[in-house]
Design a binder for these strands. Sequence first.
DNA 1: CTTGTTAGAATAATAGATTTTTTGTTGACT
DNA 2: AGTCAACAAAAAATCTATTATTCTAACAAG
Lengths: 255, 255
Amino acid sequence: MPGVRYDAAMSRSRSATTHTQDTYERLRADLLACRLRPGARLTISDLCGQLGANLSAVREALSRLTSEGLVVAEPQRGFRVAPISADELRDLTAVRADIEGMCLERAIAAGDVGWESQLVAAFHRLSRTPEREPADPQRMNEAWSAAHSAFHEALVSACGSPWLLRLRAILYAQSERYRRLSVPLAEVARDLNREHQAIMEAALARDAGQARALMARHVELTTRVLLEQSWPVEEKRASGRRASRPAKEAVASAA
Amino acid sequence: MPGVRYDAAMSRSRSATTHTQDTYERLRADLLACRLRPGARLTISDLCGQLGANLSAVREALSRLTSEGLVVAEPQRGFRVAPISADELRDLTAVRADIEGMCLERAIAAGDVGWESQLVAAFHRLSRTPEREPADPQRMNEAWSAAHSAFHEALVSACGSPWLLRLRAILYAQSERYRRLSVPLAEVARDLNREHQAIMEAALARDAGQARALMARHVELTTRVLLEQSWPVEEKRASGRRASRPAKEAVASAA
DNA sequence: CTTGTTAGAATAATAGATTTTTTGTTGACT
DNA sequence: AGTCAACAAAAAATCTATTATTCTAACAAG
């Protein structure tokens, strides 16, 4: 009787992932997209409702996010979304420019034709994806965000050092939150495609110095845009709401 | 009646920290000291018994350690101590040499006399602490380990970049596991005090180039010692035990 | 003797209930 | 009026029970 094999296949496909893992990924996406606002209190029971998960799952997911620096835990007072600040942004940008540069240099030294091809493909996809939601130009297009991440990953994928790539990934995720906040601000002004293309061409030409310089400028430009806006992203504490919403500080995607 | 204030003070002192936090710290210490061996299966219920904690606390602690790369989670199969390998050690060492160098360079540029004093103090303590347990020279002295960590932290504390220091801390912790494994191997052969002193003196002399070079050599030496030992740290799988112990792969401190 | 199957035991994942701690509010007192 | 303590409501932390999955090993068939 082949019934058993069938059952096994079903159960395996049913739980390729675990409930906690799911919750973690959704929370992480909400954090990176700033749908959960920096500094906001994260009430476990609310999150359970919004994500359809239970206490344990949410708590575990938040614990993981704590070590990633996207959430902060305060001993008997629960979790908050990690705050942001101009100082941190400056620091983060400087460090990220260095680390991305190191990765890029190694990738340029070690990359083969497979790396080149994937890079070209990632650039093509990115350049053909609109940066903002066609319906609402204030909002970033999720597909663009994914393509942008994939392009930067392709650039450094031949780096050869798992640890360097891991550090890079941490910094990229942190920067993503700030990038999201800058989107509603800088309307146009900037030709991102040209910047990306220049970095790619320097990389393909194996000009490590030029590639690093362009990458550093690319990373720093987003930061400058955000810092020049008189820093409008501070957490507003206890400001009287206009009664249009309940007293939720944070609004997740899964409501 | 002042009874209330008294109660409040008591309850506050009773729970300066949370149970989960405790569990996390103890597990982390066990991991860094390799009392939990790389690759070993981490059975939640066993850990509960050894640490006197409950499921949730252990699970949360393990989740945090997962993002730190000290533990790996396998979807429906629980947690394992993160494995080690010669390849990873080589990578880790190279990256850590770079990052420590960057931190050191910045600290040398920015450090004031307070930094110098703390560095001298940390070196003094380290140099007066025996590296190995006097009773059992195969085992590393915990106090030395703490002093070593404090010395390296003092070296870079004036770095001025929280993110760079954070990356450094991740890499330092990872290296600590390998360092522990190398202790029973390299009997003497090496004058660590002299190495540390040389780095300190270069730093105090504000010779960034020299300090970086010495730091890199320092980091790489431990690695070389370990790699030259024909890599004796692989996880032994399912080798028949001599029946002296139960089938526990991992033995924690709190048994 | 090897390979594959299956029942049972062990363990991980999930869910929910209970206990502490914090927080916000009311009311007494200066 | 303003300050401080007691109380009540909310939320976090802890603990326990239940369900689902994996692992072990015994057993049957080739």
